[in-house]
Amino acid sequence: MSDAAIAHAHQFDDATQQRDAATLGMWIFLATEILFFGGLFLGYTVYRIAYPQAFAEASRHTLLVFGGTNTAILLISSAIMAFAVRAAQNQKRMALVIHLFGTTTLGVLFLCIKGFEYSREISEHLLPGNSFHFAQPHATHAELFFYLYFLMTGVHALHVLIGVFLIGFFGINALFTNHLEQQATAIDLLGLYWHFVDIVWVVLFPLIYLIGRNA
């Protein structure tokens, strides 16, 4: 790809500088996202160390089949997104469109499964609040686990939703644009965001679904 052919905004010397600035901006945003999710992970760590049995009991009531399937879906979607980034760099329009829509489809599937999972848990009275009911010895502290569960997966699902919209938008754009060569940087940065959302889930998954399974 020759950068000389790509237009750049007037504040940049050339297209390479523009691309590097945009890329650095995305990485700085991701660094702030590490701290944003980090606060939630810190809360989780504090309460898990304080109430290990309650967390193990509560974790056994999460739906591992849903969580495991969703992990696989996000991992595969990340691989497909990596292909989309390469397709954008090589200016292969159809490959780019197919891989972007593939990623979006898997993102939507993730959200659907998450929705079914939430609805099961809400009907089992596991949503913290007045209707919370947990017939185990450590119910009060288990409620803390479910509070963190809904908050962390909810914030993560919001990130997936934003990603789905953005990737879908860029997929439609890639289908019709006459300036495909201008898209490579944006698709690359979108890929970074999507992979980051995947990484957050990879860390979240064992903390939520996999504690106390051997008891």
Binding site: D20, T23, L24, W27, I28, L30, A31, T32, E33, I34, L35, S78, A79, M81, A82, G191, L192, H195, F196, D198, I199, V202
Partner: peptide, 23 residues
């Protein structure tokens, strides 16, 4: 994911600095 999908080795030193600062 960092090494293969996000291609962290091909990014410049500033990117490493930003990510390192986050962690």
């Amino acid at each position: 994911i960092f090494l293969v999908f996000m291609d962290i080795r091909e990014r410049g030193k500033l990117v490493w600095l930003a990510l390192g600062a986050g962690f």
